[in-house]
Computed example of a mutant assay.
Amino acid sequence: MSWRAWLAPLGWLLLLLVAVRWLGELEGLFRALEPGARVVIYPRASFARLLANHLAIVATAAALAVSLGVAAGILVTRPWGRDFLPLVSQVASIGQTFPPVAVLALAVPLLGFGSLPTIVALLLYGLLPVLRNTLAGLQGVPAAVLESARGIGMAPRQVLLQVELPLAATVILAGIRTSVTVTIATAAIGSTIGASTLGDPVIAGLVNGNSAYVLQGALLIGLLAISVDSAFERLQQLIGSRQGR
């Protein structure tokens, strides 16, 4: 795949960085949106700082979700772990269907305000896509391929690392892509319990009736989500092309 294939992700990333740096210079534009507001550019923290905090929370939650989801998917597709497949699937499904706001409400009394309960909520919410796609990818490896690998003397660990995971990589990556993209958008709710994220301007705008704040936060969250999703799309294409798909 040519380097030109990465122009779209790089373009979205550049647009995000430009917005972070110069969004505050567009006061006249936002003033037209909110002519009666005393302040139209979100003042409580720089957009760069909010972006960095948002990324840190998302990266932590996504790393945990990917690690747990892939590990659980591998464990329950081994002969000695298949009995746990229904239980693991149900637990992950409950985490996906339980509203993140409800998780925050339950986590705050135990974990306090800030980033930690937000990460817990995002972990539970992002676990199912990773687990589901890991299961689909591993279970979709042709039995004939597995038999051939075992027939040439490969140990179970070698079969997993050299055959199953490479063949399932595109499917697993699709689940990770969904999980991370959803996590980026959902992380904004952390601002309701004191976590510093790109949701701060959105929440402040909703509370104060300032649509300029809401637009600023939503624009940056949208650009971040598109940048990451576009990068994952190119990565999937790269892996797929190497596998001859």
Results as ranks from 00 to 15, higher is better:
residue 104 L to V: 03
residue 104 L to E: 01
residue 105 A to I: 13
residue 105 A to F: 10
residue 106 L to N: 13
residue 106 L to G: 06
residue 107 A to L: 04
residue 107 A to G: 03
residue 108 V to D: 07
residue 109 P to S: 07
residue 109 P to E: 06
residue 110 L to V: 11
residue 111 L to R: 04
residue 111 L to M: 08
residue 113 F to M: 12
residue 114 G to E: 05
residue 115 S to F: 03
residue 115 S to P: 01
residue 115 S to H: 05
residue 118 T to F: 04
residue 119 I to M: 03
residue 119 I to T: 12
residue 119 I to S: 04
residue 119 I to E: 02
residue 120 V to Q: 06
residue 120 V to H: 00
residue 120 V to P: 00
residue 121 A to Y: 00
residue 122 L to R: 03
residue 122 L to G: 00
residue 123 L to Y: 08
residue 123 L to M: 10
residue 125 Y to A: 01
residue 125 Y to S: 09
residue 126 G to N: 05
residue 126 G to T: 09
residue 126 G to S: 12
residue 127 L to P: 01
residue 127 L to S: 00
residue 127 L to C: 02
residue 129 P to A: 06
residue 130 V to A: 05
residue 131 L to T: 00
residue 131 L to N: 04
residue 132 R to F: 05
residue 132 R to N: 02
residue 133 N to S: 12
residue 133 N to I: 03
residue 135 L to A: 02
residue 136 A to D: 12
residue 136 A to T: 08
residue 137 G to S: 06
residue 139 Q to R: 15
residue 140 G to E: 10
residue 140 G to A: 09
residue 141 V to P: 12
residue 141 V to H: 11
residue 141 V to A: 14
residue 142 P to K: 13
residue 143 A to R: 11
residue 143 A to E: 12
residue 143 A to P: 01
residue 144 A to T: 13
residue 145 V to S: 15
residue 146 L to D: 03
residue 148 S to P: 03
residue 148 S to N: 14
residue 148 S to L: 15
residue 149 A to D: 02
residue 149 A to M: 10
residue 150 R to D: 09
residue 150 R to L: 09
residue 151 G to Y: 05
residue 151 G to L: 05
residue 152 I to D: 04
residue 152 I to W: 09
residue 152 I to R: 13
residue 153 G to P: 05
residue 153 G to M: 05
residue 154 M to R: 08
residue 155 A to D: 08
residue 155 A to M: 11
residue 156 P to R: 11
residue 157 R to A: 15
residue 157 R to Y: 07
residue 157 R to E: 14
residue 159 V to Y: 07
residue 160 L to V: 06
residue 162 Q to L: 14
residue 163 V to S: 11
residue 164 E to I: 06
residue 164 E to W: 03
residue 165 L to H: 11
residue 166 P to R: 09
residue 166 P to K: 02
residue 169 A to I: 02
residue 169 A to L: 14
residue 169 A to S: 15
residue 169 A to M: 13
residue 170 T to G: 09
residue 171 V to R: 07
residue 172 I to H: 08
residue 172 I to K: 10
residue 173 L to I: 08
residue 174 A to N: 11
residue 174 A to S: 14
residue 174 A to V: 01
residue 176 I to M: 11
residue 177 R to Q: 15
residue 178 T to Q: 15
residue 178 T to V: 15
residue 180 V to F: 10
residue 181 T to Y: 13
residue 181 T to D: 14
residue 182 V to K: 14
residue 182 V to Q: 12
residue 183 T to A: 03
residue 184 I to D: 02
residue 185 A to V: 14
residue 186 T to A: 13
residue 186 T to M: 14
residue 187 A to E: 02
residue 187 A to G: 04
residue 188 A to F: 09
